[in-house]
Design a protein around this nucleic acid. Structure first.
Length: 430
RNA sequence: UCCGGUAUAGCUCAGUUGGUUAGAGCAGCGGACUGUUAAUCCGCGUGUCCCAAGUUCGAGUCUUGGUACCGGAGCCA
């Protein structure tokens, strides 16, 4: 008898199969029982009839508890009354293990309780769907870059120095030396871009920010392309194409999951290029008109970001930020020294910044000045400065926070559900 | 770090102006039921009322301090 996964069940109509999985829910009605079986690929209803299985087997069925692991053999039949259109008429079943007092019942639970039971919460329909979408997003990111001749080059997690300020680094003891967990792979990405032309890295980043918001994790995943011979405008185009590609892939491949999480798909269907582009200065004007107390030179807070993005249905590209509020490696605009050739992309529906990028500064003396201004040590950046000595070229890149993209595409109110095991200021377990 | 809120059964919560024996639903256990969709119906049990101190004849309820968590701000992807 063939062992099949629930997502393939429609090709086994009127055939006998074996399914292995876990009891999602079960109801019994005297002589007939309904067992919702979850196998990681889907959920299917199994019909257990007393007359067919016999008294002994039927009373064993009634002992099955939520999340007990079992193996079921039976006939696949089409039935409109079953969720998914198919069900299994059970011939026999075997128990791997009876689960006892499973903590997550089909009723409501508080978020802290659920996060404490995250290792089990992953089995729930909605969480399962979110992580399937996360997987699709990551896959489409890789496909996008792979299809466009980028090379994946992994950047280190232990680093001796900071890319953008030291206050938010996690410090570790590295054989009696200080090492930090990476905040970004960007500086290494620049080295790689000059070796491979088109580079991307994708991995975890760590920030010791004491942030308690729906948008922050201390450990999050970021994808960072870095492209040689690329200016800020081409950089924006790459970012725009990437986002359009991801949203489209999710729409094509994850209809079921989007339905489970009750995402308004029409909002995602509006995501296509080109995205609106606003200069920082235009944003300040827009905010002033909206009665925000802000002046040129101030950074946006999240209410400001939400206000700007609420004017559009698509992601908004904001460019031309004051150099003072941006990282040292961003190139100054030759036409206006006060601003940098940097850009942020704000997701719609109030999700805020999902991408930050720039054309990189190539003038070594400007870099040295900026490193000094930021209070960084030149010694730590010698290798980085080498990149400006040996065949320096215009180049650009950006970083995209995977969890923020997942939160936006899934329409979630909090980023903590977008990663399997969230790390926040107040959570290190499980 | 700052501002606001919450903490009562395994879980989600109610608990009046302080009043003597602290409740409900769900989960669990027992029973009924051959088409259920968070099945339904009947029966059963459950407490360090977050911790410490205080006010009071009397504190789940009021006060102070602490702890944990939630929401927001700043910082950022």
């Amino acid at each position: 008898m063939k062992f099949v996964n629930v997502n393939d069940i429609d090709s086994y109509k009127d055939k006998k199969v074996t399914i292995k999985g876990w009891v999602y829910n079960s109801r019994s009605s005297g002589k007939i029982g309904f067992l919702m079986l979850r196998d990681g690929f889907g959920i299917i209803q199994c019909i257990v009839e007393k007359n067919k299985l016999g008294d002994e087997s039927f009373s064993l069925f009634k002992t099955l508890t939520q999340e007990s692991s079992i193996k079921v053999k039976g006939l696949v039949v089409k039935n409109e009354r079953a969720l998914g259109g198919f069900e299994i008429l059970v011939d026999s079943f075997e128990i791997y293990q009876l689960s006892k007092d499973y903590p997550i019942t089909p009723k409501e639970h508080g978020i802290d309780y659920l996060m404490n039971n995250r290792h089990l919460w992953l089995r729930s329909k909605k969480q399962h769907a979110i992580l399937k979408i996360r997987h699709r997003i990551i896959k489409s990111v890789r496909d996008f870059f792979d299809n466009n001749n980028f090379t994946l080059v992994d950047t280190p997690i232990f680093t001796p120095n900071a890319a953008e300020g030291t206050s938010t680094l996690f410090e570790t003891d590295y054989f009696d030396e200080k090492a930090y967990l990476c905040q970004t792979g960007q500086l290494y990405g620049e080295a790689s871009a000059l070796a491979f032309g088109r580079h991307y890295n994708f991995g975890p980043c760590f920030r010791a920010e004491k942030s308690k918001t729906r948008r922050h994790l201390t450990e999050f995943w970021m994808v960072e392309p870095e492209i040689a011979f690329c200016d800020i405008n081409e950089n924006m185009k790459w970012a725009e194409n990437l986002l359009v590609y991801i949203v489209n892939e999710v729409l094509i491949n994850n209809r079921d999951e989007l339905k489970i999480i009750e995402r308004d798909i029409s909002k995602l269907q509006e995501i296509n290029g080109p995205f609106p582009r606003l200069s920082y200065t235009e944003c300040i004007e827009l905010l002033k008109k909206g009665n925000y107390d802000i002046k040129w030179g101030d950074d946006f807070g999240s209410p400001e970001e939400t206000y700007i993005s609420s004017k559009y249905k698509k992601p908004v590209i904001v460019y031309g930020f004051p150099s003072k509020i941006k990282a040292f490696y961003m190139k100054r605009d030759p036409e206006n020294e006060k601003v940098v050739l940097g850009m942020d992309i704000l997701a719609p529906e109030g999700y805020g910044e999902i991408i930050g990028g720039s054309e990189r500064e190539v003038d070594i003396s400007v870099l040295l000045d900026r490193i000094k201004e930021e209070g960084l040590s030149r010694k730590d950046y010698e290798w980085f400065l080498d990149l400006r000595k040996y065949g320096s070229v215009p180049h650009s890149g950006f970083g995209m926070g995977i969890e923020r993209v997942v939160a936006w595409i899934c329409g979630l109110s909090h980023i903590r559900e977008t990663i399997p095991f969230a790390r926040t200021m107040t959570r290190l377990n499980p």
